[in-house]
Structure formats: C-alpha cells, structure tokens
C-alpha cells in the first residue's frame, strides 16, 4: 500500500513569491526572516521524499463560479496550467505548468464517492494560488505529479466544518489503502483570521490575533474536538470575513488525525495575516521529525 509520507498544513500568502524574490529597496524588511522560515519548512517536505502530492486548496473565483459551484472537487487531468492573469497582476505570480497523477485522482474520486462524499470532478482545471503558493514554498521545482482537491470556503452556502475534517480523515484513509508503493504527501492550505474587502483588512497583524493564537494551538496539538466545538459556519465570520479558509486547516487536522501533535510547527506574525506552518510524519513514514521552528 501507499505511504502517507507527510501531512502538511500551511497558510498560503500570495505575497511570498514577490517578497522572496525582490531585491534592493524593493525587498520588504521582513523578507529575510520569512524566507528563512519557509526554507526550514520546505525541508520538512524534502526529507519525507514524496513521489506524489495531494494538494488541498480553494479556487478564488477563477475557474469555479456561482453558476455551477462545487463544494468539494477533485481534479483528474494529466496536466494543470496554473495561476491566472489577476494573480499575475496583483501578486506577481508566475504562470506554472504541473503534471497530474490521474490514477490517484481516479482512485480518490471512486473511493471518495463510495465513502459518502459526492465529489465533483474536473478534467480541465487551471490551478490558482491556493495550490501554487505551497508549491512555491515547499517544492519550487514543481516536479512531482499532483492531485488537486478544491473546497468551497468562499461562497455561501458552504459545507459544515465537520465535513471538512471528515473529508480529510477520508483522504488519509484512502491514500493509505491505495495499492502501490508510492510515497504520498498530503498538503493543504487555508487561512487563520483573515479579512478581505472589509474594514479590518491589511492591518499590522491579522484581524484577530486571539483567534490565531487559539487556532495555532488547536492545529499544533491536533485538538480537533476543541476546534469543532468552537468553530461554526456562523462563528467564522467574527475573526475576519475570509476566515472560512480555516476549514481547510480543519480538513488537514482530519488528515493528520485527531489528537496527533504536529512534528513541526512554526508561525510568523505578518501584516494582514499570520503565517503558520505544520508538518506531521505519520508512523512508518520514514521522516525524521524536525525540531519546531518556534
């Protein structure tokens, strides 16, 4: 059977690429610290020696639109073009071209449907920064085949937080039962407190540092029960109007396993939103736990 080589959860900050590649007076003062943290985080994936990446993210109204909006969708295509004109325009992100792993996509679709998730699928999917940002940070070579999984954290009505956690748990179980010897990393990105297009946007910190502190604690300790007890679709509007992206972290907590502590935890308090990075090495994966960056 396949091995889950690592489970990785991260924020996806679209400004990282520009901050990390800028020089001279264009380089922001926080760039060096940010790059150092990302390079340490990248090592946690590198040492897991993955063959395939299952990538969980969310389309930001790029290809998926309100006339036909899936809640959970798996890409099944041999290739994926990536990043869109408005991400190039606003964030300076490069166009990318990624290989797909159609066999694993087909397997996760079939088994996921049979496990009680009525998954949508796409045979022609252009990937956006929710998946390209973690590739840029964790695997800039972008040389491994991917299975993209999109969730709706954007357009109400959305699935309940517990469904995200259950989907994560199911993805983990299915990957572990996938016939073959491949090493699979499950990587997902979400948000801590975040405000976009509202009065609390682009402040000196994320809009709700107290939520961020609690959320980092839940994720680092695998405390899915507390997260599920405190978080609801209604409550997530409070820390910031784009905080439903935290449900992708809950999906990853499901994938990591309830009450399983992260082997690597780091965070960076930036303007606009807090960055947070977590890696778990499931038993038998062969990775050597990194020390925490915190």
């Amino acid at each position: 059977m396949a091995t889950v080589a690592a489970v990785i959860a991260s924020t996806h900050h679209p400004f990282y690429y520009r901050a990390s590649t800028s020089t001279g007076t264009d380089r922001p003062p926080f760039a060096d610290e940010w790059v150092a943290k990302i390079e340490a985080f990248r090592q946690t994936l590198t040492q897991a020696r993955p063959d395939v990446l299952v990538m969980v993210g969310s389309d930001h109204f790029h290809q998926l639109w309100l006339d036909n909006m899936p809640q959970f969708l798996i890409g099944k295509a041999p290739f994926y073009d990536a990043n869109f004109y408005n991400e190039e325009r606003e964030f300076g992100l490069p166009r990318m071209f990624l290989k797909g792993h159609e066999d694993l996509s087909a397997y996760l679709l079939r088994e996921g449907l049979d496990a009680g998730f009525d998954l949508a699928f796409s045979n022609e999917l252009r990937i956006d920064h929710s998946i390209t940002c973690p590739l840029i940070t964790l695997r800039p070579e972008a040389d491994l085949p991917i299975v993209p999984i999109y969730t709706n954290i954007f357009a109400p009505p959305m699935p309940q937080p517990r469904r995200f956690a259950e989907l994560g748990r199911t993805i983990r179980r299915l990957v572990e039962a996938w016939p073959g010897e491949q090493r699979v990393a499950i990587i997902g990105t979400g948000h801590l407190s975040l405000e976009l297009g509202g009065p609390r946007q682009f402040g000196p910190h994320g809009p709700d540092p107290e939520f961020d502190r609690k959320a980092v604690g839940w994720i680092a300790s695998g405390d899915l029960d507390s997260a599920l007890a405190e978080v609801s679709l209604d409550s997530l509007w409070e820390p910031g109007n784009a905080t439903h992206g935290f449900m992708d972290f809950m999906l990853m907590m499901g994938a990591a396993g309830a009450n399983v502590k992260a082997d690597y935890t780091d965070s960076l308090d930036l303007f606009h939103t807090m960055e947070a990075y977590f890696t778990w090495y499931p038993d038998g994966a062969g990775g050597t736990p990194e020390q925490s960056g915190r």
């Binding site: 930001h60 109204f61 408005n86 325009r89 606003e90 954007f154 357009a155 976009l196 297009g197 509202g198 009065p199 609390r200 946007q201 682009f202 402040g203 109007n241 784009a242 303007f271």
Partner: peptide, 30 residues
C-alpha cells in the same frame, strides 16, 4: 457584493494611484 471580488477588482482599478504600498487597501478599510 462578494468582498473578495470587489476588493480584487478595485485594487486593479485604483492601487496604481497611491504612492504608498497598500495605500489604497488601507483607505478602503478606513
């Protein structure tokens, strides 16, 4: 209107008119 759609388009429209980085986004918040 969806907050993300409005913000993204209006950054494209008006960020260029502000000398300070994130100047438009901060005025938008105010």
């Amino acid at each position: 209107a969806h907050n993300f759609l409005t913000l993204t388009l209006f950054i494209a429209l008006f960020e260029r008119d502000y000398a300070e980085p994130l100047g438009f986004q901060r005025e938008y918040a105010v």
